[in-house]
């Protein structure tokens, strides 16, 4: 096994929407006072991205930043950059009350592709998938477990959940995307 292992080893299901495990990405959870300028500066330094607005997602040359809660961000970086990014954050935030942790391995991440991504997700989450704007991150319920959902464009959606339920979430999404289940309302 290499560093780049993912919980589901890249599983993929082709229905009227394709569900596949996302390529490995480093993930860092950062908790702190987001109004503290030091946090924004540290985040920009390691990702190139600005601090997102609530529920937002921003991107920089070295990573993406998702807003998780009023005092929590989730940073996505290249898989081999996780340790450096973490070290970078911690050193820049020396003396600032914060918590920065590598959470790469506790997450499973999926990519949904196809014209029906909104409606496939609308089968498993109470979020209004018809109006969810791209790059808006919703932490919500996916069938029976917690997860996060966002669109990067009209035909690509992203799902992140805990790795222990990765198989469950994948199976739920694949079932929802199975041929014949087209709803056709969005």
């Amino acid at each position: 096994m290499s560093d780049l292992a993912t919980p589901l080893n890249g599983r993929r299901a082709v229905g009227y929407v394709t569900v596949s495990e996302d390529a490995p990405r480093g993930m860092i959870s950062l908790r702190g006072d987001l109004s503290d300028g030091g946090i924004a500066e540290a985040v920009r330094a390691v990702t190139g991205a600005n601090l997102p607005e609530p529920l937002g997602l921003t991107a920089g040359e070295a990573g993406q930043v998702a807003w998780m809660s009023p005092d929590e961000l989730l940073l996505f970086v290249a898989p081999n950059q996780t340790t450096d990014a973490l070290t970078g954050l911690r050193s820049r935030l020396e003396g600032v009350h914060h918590l920065a942790l590598d959470v790469t391995d506790m997450r499973a991440a999926f990519r949904l592709e196809g014209r029906g991504v909104r409606e496939v997700l609308a089968k498993v989450t109470p979020v209004d998938m018809q109006t969810l704007a791209p790059d808006t991150v919703r932490r919500t319920r996916l069938a029976q477990v917690a997860g996060a959902v966002w669109l990067s464009d009209e035909e690509t959606a992203h799902v992140v959940c805990f790795s222990s339920v990765g198989t469950y979430v994948f199976d739920v999404l694949a079932t929802s995307a199975a041929p014949g289940g087209e709803v056709g309302v969005f």
Partner: peptide
Amino acid sequence: AGEARGEIFQPLRRTP
């Protein structure tokens, strides 16, 4: 029940 039957009746947590 919706999709919740068989293997996905309820979430099953698996260790690595």
